[in-house]
């Protein structure tokens, strides 16, 4: 895998009107592009620059919201170009402290099944379920094999957004093992809260009920968004996931799903979270080894 590393093009700097600066690191998704987005935005975060209102790392790009009355957007671009030159996301000694989290998912659950059956006319393959379709187009012999692949290796939270708390997650496997599915032909008008979806090369958990275009694979019993902040994991904020988190979408059965739902209802649920020292360069040379280590730390 060491020689398969992705070469990124030079970043493209652009203005989103006078209040935003958009920086495209690559048009294709890669862990390399995301590591670079994270490294630059973390560096900027630490600088606490006057006039920077929002710093949004994205999958293969990032977006900065600026107050042009306090910081000239062109000056911000020059500053970001400097950061691009100075940060070295793939330096051998570069490591970031992050969280590894166990996120249980009931794959092929009855609730998302009911929803996806209602919207077959908006799907590429009205005769199959979303899981059956995704297994087929990705060359898996069965839905079980697809679920094993999804559940087997962890995902990196590469962006939060769309709606409050929605994590875009990219699986931490080499590109040739990435699962990719198209989005619905026409978006659904309904998606259950906590649905585990997949679109392009990204897995998501829908924080709230609403429209959506991702393939529906399952349902998470625990929330990623909690406006009431009732659960302990939401003490510091209404959104649980953070960019850079490593999530493992572990396949669970119905009885575990019900047990977790019960804990969530009673307000006692806590995610299994472990601290992890993540070294991007090391990961890219030995993804399977690092993933094994991540799971070992998580369930130790």
């Amino acid at each position: 895998m060491a020689n398969a590393s992705v070469e990124l093009p030079p970043a493209r700097y652009d203005h989103g009107g006078d209040e935003f600066v958009f920086v495209e690191l690559d048009r294709a998704m890669s862990l390399e592009a995301n590591f670079k987005a994270m490294a630059i935005t973390s560096a900027l975060q630490e600088e606490n620059l006057e006039g920077v209102l929002d710093i949004c790392p994205s999958n293969a790009s990032y977006l900065i919201r600026v107050d042009p009355d306090r910081l000239h957007p062109a000056e911000l671009v020059r500053h970001l170009e400097g950061l691009e030159r100075s940060v070295a996301p793939l330096a051998p000694d570069k490591a970031v402290r992050t969280r590894v989290v166990d996120v249980p998912v009931l794959y092929d659950d009855p609730w998302t099944h009911e929803t996806l059956m209602r919207f077959r006319d908006r799907h590429q393959d009205p005769e199959a379920t979303d899981l059956e379709y995704a297994a087929r187009v990705n060359g898996f012999a069965s839905v079980g094999e697809l679920v094993e692949a999804l559940s087997g290796s962890p995902f990196l939270v590469t962006m939060i957004g769309f709606v409050p708390g929605l994590p875009f997650c990219y699986q931490m496997v080499p590109r040739e093992r990435q699962i990719e599915v198209p989005k619905y032909v026409r978006p659904r008008t309904d998606t259950p809260e906590r649905a585990f979806g997949y679109g392009g090369a990204f897995a998501v958990v829908y924080p709230v009920r609403g429209a959506g275009g991702y393939q529906l694979f399952g349902l998470a019993p625990a929330p990623v968004f909690d406006r009431t902040q009732r659960l302990a994991d939401f003490e510091d904020g209404i959104v649980f996931p953070r960019p850079g988190d490593i999530l493992r979408y572990r396949s669970i059965d119905r009885s575990e799903f019900d047990a977790i739902r019960d804990e969530v209802e009673r307000g006692t649920f806590r995610y299994r979270i472990r601290e992890f020292e993540f070294a991007p360069a090391h990961f890219l040379t030995d993804p399977d080894g690092v993933n094994a280590q991540i799971l070992e730390v998580l369930y130790r």
Binding site: F22, S61, L63
Partner: peptide, 21 residues
Amino acid sequence: PPHGAGSDPANVVDLGYPLGS
């Protein structure tokens, strides 16, 4: 389509939207 974007011609790898975009 670039890796991760999805197959629709309007799709790009998901990114941040400026207000007013």
